[in-house]
Design a binder for these strands. Structure first.
Length: 203
DNA sequence: TGTCCGATTGGT
DNA sequence: CCAATCGGACAG
């Protein structure tokens, strides 16, 4: 069952980022086979006040335009000349909030995932935002895709109790000054598929 | 159009 | 720790 529009249009992006944990990200390939993973790590970005956000200070360009769309839209961009990053847009139109999905635990289409990530250990298949995009076949063609459509979506997964959720600072945003230390990254405690560089945490 | 740099990763 | 690698943002 796909998560409904109201899940995404809520105004508190931190709450949505936390609630995403345990749900299942699904990408059907063109044969109709499903590749899917349970979301185990997320990061909230709250433009325009959040200096770490691409939409900081109201920045609105060809790339960031997606973030201004309706909650429940995919925001996929390309970084470091080689990696894609999959994000979920939240809130209502014109409020550029988004959540970076940093790691999933593979649960469907393992054969396809292993082929795309040949030579890697099991815990390295989808344990990072760039890795999971390779594993699941996500690229910029999915930018602006509606998560209530049929190209990529998130459906009800497993239930995760509040006690299993840990939070800590976001990763790779050293340029964000005072926003660096905000504990806006959420992950499932002890899950083997969370990204490496998981530094200090607090709950 | 030129320069700087990135919401990462894999190898040293 | 560091290089890879190229598109985006912005200055000029």
């Amino acid at each position: 069952m796909k998560l409904p529009r109201e899940f995404y249009t809520r105004s508190d992006v931190l709450e949505v980022a936390r609630d995403l944990l345990g749900n299942k990200l699904v990408v059907p390939n063109r044969n109709g086979a499903r590749v899917a993973g349970i979301i185990v790590e997320t990061e909230a970005y709250r433009g325009p006040e959040d200096k770490a956000s691409h939409a900081y200070n109201g920045r609105r360009t060809r790339r960031t335009e997606t973030m201004y769309g309706l909650g429940g839209t995919a925001y996929v961009y390309f970084v470091y000349g080689m990696y894609h990053q999959f994000n979920v847009v939240t809130n209502v139109e014109d409020v550029p909030h988004a959540i970076l999905v940093r790691a999933v635990e593979p649960v469907e289409g393992l054969d396809i995932i292993r082929r795309r990530r040949r030579g890697r250990f099991e815990h390295e298949l989808t344990s990072g935002p760039g890795r999971l995009c390779v594993a699941m076949g996500i690229d910029r063609k999915l930018d602006k895709a509606d998560l209530l459509g049929d190209r990529v979506w998130i459906e009800e997964g497993v239930s995760v109790s509040r006690r299993q959720i840990v939070r800590g600072p976001r990763i790779g945003i050293d340029y964000a000054e005072e926003w660096v230390k905000k504990a806006w990254r959420f992950w499932i405690r002890d899950n083997p598929c969370v990204s490496r560089r998981s530094g200090r945490s607090f709950d």
